[in-house]
């Protein structure tokens, strides 16, 4: 029979390793420190078409992650997609910022890119990004290309 103190020590050691493993998972594997969804301020954007954008997709500026997408809804009157962005408190964007939907790499995930303009005033919580550029839809581009080719007449298509 092992004595009491030794058991206590071993259990303490076990709990410490377990908590250490959890901390490792939270800090090194997960993104707990980077950015939590509840901090920061909210911006609203509207797009005609968001393509394959998903909730929690990153918001980047100059390639740096500055926030995440919090919610995606459809405005049932204008038929625009309304997207709420959650931006980290340390980043500020001017009133004439342009929001566009881009794809990382050829087949990568889609994200929103914010490009600040030259205006002096910064956007506050709940404000709306006025200038937006929709996602590039590959099928539409191909359709447009074919349509243009057809319009040029049968003789020009080789």
């Amino acid at each position: 029979m092992i004595n009491r103190a030794k058991i206590d020590l071993a259990v303490g050691f076990f709990v410490a390793i377990g908590i250490l493993a959890l901390v490792f998972l939270a800090l090194k594997v997960g993104n707990l420190v980077n950015f939590s969804m509840s901090e920061g301020y909210r911006l609203e954007t509207r797009f005609d078409n968001i393509g394959g954008l998903k909730v929690r997709a990153p918001v980047k500026s100059a390639g740096v992650v500055v926030g995440r997408i919090e919610a995606i809804q459809l405005d049932s009157e204008t038929y625009e997609a309304v997207i709420d962005l959650r931006i980290a408190p340390e980043y500020r964007f001017t009133k004439d910022t342009i929001a566009s939907i881009l794809t990382s790499g050829l087949l990568g995930e889609q994200y929103i890119s914010l490009e600040s303009g030259g205006e002096a005033e910064y956007m506050k919580n709940g404000e709306r990004v006025m200038k937006t550029q929709s996602a590039m839809i590959l099928e539409k581009l191909i359709g447009q290309f074919l349509f243009n080719k057809a319009a040029e007449g049968p003789g020009t298509v080789k």
Binding site: L25, A26, K28, V29, G30
Partner: peptide, 15 residues
Amino acid sequence: FWSQMQANVDFRLDI
């Protein structure tokens, strides 16, 4: 290896 992992593993949702 680590940065892609951190970008895609969420503390609340996954861990």
